[in-house]
Design a binder for these strands. Structure first.
Lengths: 334, 334
DNA sequence: CTGTTAGCGCCTTCAC
DNA sequence: GTGAAGGCGCTAACAG
C-alpha cells in the first residue's frame, strides 16, 4: 500500500541509506545514483513519511503557536507574520486558540509539547508561574510573542505598550486637551490592558492633569463596548474633549457613538488609540492611532525562534519593536 | 533525559504494554495497576511522545488546513470554526497560507500529506485537475471548505454564492433600482468572483434589465479597490443608483468613496454586498448584506471531516449552508 | 561514495 | 488482566 524508503531502495538497486541521503540532499551521493533514486521515487510515487523521520531525527520541523483568538484581526495579522517566516525556514505551524484562558493555555502547551514541536510561540494573557513551569518542562525553545513575562527571563518580542499609550495620550495633550477619557481593556491583561492604562496615567501625571476615575471605562476590546463606554462619557456633565482608546476597534465604536449622538469627530471630540489595524483607515474620519507592527511582531518572533532552535546565539532575547504615531483625521486641537 | 514509556513501566513495576493501556484509556487494566502507573507517570513527569505514537498507530490526530490568507477576516473566522470543532474532537490543525496560488497550494498539500495528517481541509482558489490529482494520492479524507469543485466529486461545505449574489441584487431591484453597478472580485475566483458575478447577471436578466459592461469593475477584495471602483462609477454620465459589491470590505470602500464625494448613502446611492463580516455593522450607515455563515462553514466542514476520518457514512458529502439577507441601513428605495 | 545495523518511542497482536 | 516481541518508516553512526 504505502511505499517506503525500502521499496525505493529496492527499485533503484541501492540501500536505504542512499535513498535517505538523496531525499535529504546529502551531497555525498554520486550524481548517477542520485538520478537512479529520483527516478525510482518518481516511478513509485514515494512520499517521505515525516512522522517516521521525526521519530528518528528528533526534529519535526513544526512549531506550536498558541494564540488568543485567530478571528481577532490583530492576532490574525501576527499569525500571518509568523507563518510567512516559518514557511521561509521550512517550518509548519500548529495553531491553537486559547482565548487568554490560563487553563486552556497550559493544556495546549502540553499537547503541543507532546507533538514534539521544535519550538513554541506563545501569545496569551498573563504569563503566570504555572506557565513558566510548563515552559520549563519543555526542552525546546519558547518565545513570547506580543507579550512579556514579569521577570523578563523568557525571550520575547513585543512593543512597549506603556510607552505607546503614553505617546498617544501625549499627542492629545500637545493639542491642548486636558479632559481626556480612556476606554481601557481589562486590567488583568498585562499588555493591552494594564500597561496601556499605566501609560495613560503617566501622561496625565506628567502634564499635571489630575487622574479622574470617572473618565475611565473598561471595555472588552469589541466595537460594542467602545460604543457603550463612549455613551457613558457623553452623559457626563463635563464631557471630555478627547478620548483615548486602548484599541482601534473600541475607538471606532467611540467615533460612531459620538456621531450617533449628533456630535462630530474631531470637531467636538477627538479620538485616538493604539493598534493601527487595517480598520483604522476604514472609518470616517480616519483614525489617528499609535501603530503597533503586528505582522513584524509575528515575523520577528518566528525569526528569533528559528535562531534559538538552531542554537545560534542571539544578542538580545528581549526585543522591543518600535511603535509610531500615525496622525490621521480623528484628532484636532481643543 | 527524556522519560519514555519504558521508564514508566520499570518505575511502576509493570510492562510497557500496561502503561500504554492506561495512557490510552484501555479499560482492561485493574484499577490498582492503573493507579500505580499514574503515580509513576506523575513521579517521572512522563509525557507521551505523539510522534512515536503516530508512527506506531498511523494516526496523528492532526489535520491540515490550507487557507488563502489567515489575515483576511473572512478566512480567520472560518479558521476559528475549524479549530473549535477540531479541538472538540481532540485534533490539532496545521495551518498553511497559500494565497490562492495553485503552485503554493499543491506544495503545501504535499507537505501536509508528508506530515501524515489524518485529514485535509482545503480552502483555496479554483480546484484544478492538478489539485484533484494531488488529492487522489492522499489516502486520507479531504473536504473543501468555502469552495467546491466543478465535478462535484469531492466533499465540500459552502454557500451558494451565485444565489447569494442573486438575492442581494434582487433586493435592490425590489426597491426599484435598475441602474445597478457591481464591484466584482476576480473572475478567476470561482466562488467569490465568478459565481457572484453570475448571480448579479441572472438577477438583472430576470428583471429584464440589460447588462451593461461599463457598470462592472473588478476589484481585488480590498477596501481601496472598492474606493477606486466607486470613484469610477461616480464619474459616469449616468451614475448608478445602487451598487452591489461582491464583498463587504469593498462595499465599505464604496460607501466611503460616495461620502467623500459629498453624496449620501443610501439617499443618493444604495450599497449592498455579500459576507456580513463583523465590519458590516462597524460602518455608518451600517451595511446591508447577504450573510454568509463563515464560522459555521468552518465548523461544519471540520465536523464532516471527522466523520470521514472515522469512516462513518455521511448522507450528503456536499453541504450547502443557507445564506440570509440582513437589511441594515445602506439600502433604500430609489 | 555506499551499505549495514541499530535504534527513535510507542502500539498491537498474540500468548499466558 | 498482563507481558513479550515484532514492527511503524526513517536517520545516523560506523564500516568499508
Amino acid at each position: 500500500m504505502t511505499v517506503t524508503i525500502y521499496d525505493v531502495a529496492r527499485e533503484a538497486g541501492v540501500s536505504m541509506a542512499t535513498v535517505s541521503r538523496v531525499v535529504n540532499n546529502n551531497p555525498n551521493v554520486k550524481p548517477q545514483t542520485r538520478k537512479k533514486v529520483f527516478e525510482a521515487i518518481e516511478r513509485l510515487g514515494y512520499r517521505p513519511n515525516a512522522v517516521a523521520r521525526g521519530l528518528a531525527s528528533k526534529k519535526t520541523t513544526t512549531v506550536g503557536v498558541v494564540i488568543p483568538d485567530i478571528s481577532n484581526s490583530i492576532f490574525a495579522e501576527v499569525a500571518r507574520g509568523i507563518e510567512d517566516i516559518a514557511n521561509m525556514y521550512h517550518y509548519n505551524i500548529i495553531l491553537c486558540n486559547a482565548d487568554k484562558k490560563k487553563e486552556k493555555e497550559i493544556r495546549v502547551i502540553n499537547t503541543l509539547l507532546e507533538k514534539q514541536v521544535d519550538g513554541l510561540l506563545f501569545m496569551g494573557g498573563a504569563v503566570t508561574d504555572e506557565h513558566v513551569q510548563a515552559f520549563k518542562t519543555a526542552n525546546v525553545p519558547i518565545v513570547l510573542c506580543a507579550t512579556t513575562d514579569e521577570q523578563g527571563t523568557i525571550p520575547s518580542v513585543d512593543i512597549d505598550h506603556e510607552a505607546a499609550a503614553f505617546d498617544a495620550v501625549n499627542a492629545l495633550i500637545q493639542k491642548g486637551h486636558r479632559a481626556i477619557a480612556m476606554i481601557s481593556g481589562t486590567l488583568q491583561d498585562p499588555a493591552n490592558g494594564y500597561a496601556r492604562f499605566q501609560g495613560y496615567k503617566r501622561a496625565l501625571e506628567q502634564a499635571g492633569i489630575a487622574y479622574d476615575e470617572s473618565l475611565v471605562r473598561v471595555g472588552n476590546y469589541r466595537y460594542e463596548s467602545g460604543i457603550e463606554a463612549m455613551k457613558y462619557f457623553l452623559e457626563l456633565k463635563d464631557t471630555p474633549t478627547a478620548v483615548f482608546s486602548a484599541t482601534d476597534e473600541m475607538a471606532i465604536g467611540a467615533i460612531h457613538a459620538i456621531q450617533d449622538s449628533g456630535a462630530k469627530v474631531p470637531d467636538d471630540i477627538s479620538v485616538i488609540s493604539v493598534d493601527n489595524s487595517r480598520m483604522a483607515s476604514m472609518v470616517r474620519p480616519q483614525l489617528s492611532t499609535v501603530a503597533q507592527p503586528m505582522y513584524d511582531i509575528g515575523a520577528v518572533s518566528m525569526r528569533l525562534l528559528t535562531k534559538l532552535m538552531k542554537k545560534e546565539n542571539v544578542d538580545d532575547p528581549k526585543v522591543v519593536l518600535p511603535h509610531e504615531y500615525i496622525s490621521r483625521q480623528s484628532v484636532q486641537p481643543v
